[in-house]
Design a protein around this nucleic acid. Structure first.
Ligand SMILES: [Mn+2]
Ligand SMILES: [Mn+2]
Ligand SMILES: [Zn+2]
Ligand SMILES: [Zn+2]
Lengths: 141, 141
DNA sequence: TTCTTTGTTTAGACATAGTCTAAGCTAGGA
DNA sequence: TCCTAGCTTAGACTATGTCTAAACAAAGAA
């Protein structure tokens, strides 16, 4: 798991000051930011940074395969810098808290051939839902 | 797996003409429609039906637990009448074709306790991605 | 029946997330 | 230096979905 800027550089992709700020903002936290949250934070370091550049850059990093785009609720997309680190997600239905979950066999291996409908299946991602400790406590109160 | 209108009636929920048309449109096909696709088709049978009623009704059917809301891409939500029929989804990355996949053990059982972060985990859904037969053929061409 | 209450539907305004466009800017090569 | 290709920008635009206020409809009471 090497650092995102390092991984991006391997693609012959120009690391401009804007792109660096966006990549560092994305990686600098363990949560899964939306594009607007990244803009908000990146603008603190580079006030002239535009919304269009944030959206363009995130889409390019996704296309390069170095960032994952998560669409877990019907609202905004979230961006995950851990694309080199196979994992799934656990989401609290009360407050939206999201955790990474690792380990486990590849779900593609569990998909029987007669359920594949002739597809070339490349990956399977699991979204777990439930209640986080805080929301369990507030619910029984 | 009984018919959607029948299941909805069990909730003491008034089946108005609008709601019936929406439920029948949703169930009448094996695909996973968006709200706009349902509106488009339902309006053929009831031309005065409004967009607001379609959105309101779909949200209510989801809240009753009789319809599933799928957010598989970052675009529009899709609605699935098979809520009484545990299954997962397989999506073509080329053309968006979506298939149901059944069987398989409950993914919640595969999630070790030390990866649950204290959550009360209620369900896990799997999204498989790959290429459908048609897109595989057109890709090698 | 009429009155009242409650829930439903409607058109259109509004909100949000994201894309597109056209112009200007920047870096690197000839 | 000039040229070119790629990058960034502001703001217009699009798509999806929610909200509001008024009209409407059904059910129960009198
Ligand atoms: Mn993650
Ligand atoms: Mn389905
Ligand atoms: Zn929570
Ligand atoms: Zn396809």
């Amino acid at each position: 798991m090497s650092d995102l800027v390092t991984r991006l550089r391997r693609h012959n992709w120009r690391i401009t000051p804007q792109r660096r700020v966006i990549a560092e903002t994305l990686e600098g936290s363990h949560v899964h930011f939306t594009a607007e949250e990244i803009l908000e934070r990146a603008v603190e370091r580079m006030p002239e940074l535009s919304r269009a550049t944030v959206y363009n850059t995130l889409n390019e990093m996704v296309a390069l395969g170095e960032v994952l785009e998560l669409t877990l609720d019907g609202r905004s997309k979230r961006y995950d810098p851990n694309a080199d680190h196979e994992h799934h997600h656990l989401i609290c239905e009360g407050c939206g808290l999201m955790k990474d979950v690792h380990a486990m066999a590849d779900p593609v291996d569990w998909l029987p051939g007669d359920e594949r409908h002739g597809f070339a299946v490349s990956r399977g991602s699991i979204t777990y839902r439930g209640l986080c400790p805080a929301c369990q406590a507030s619910q029984q109160a």
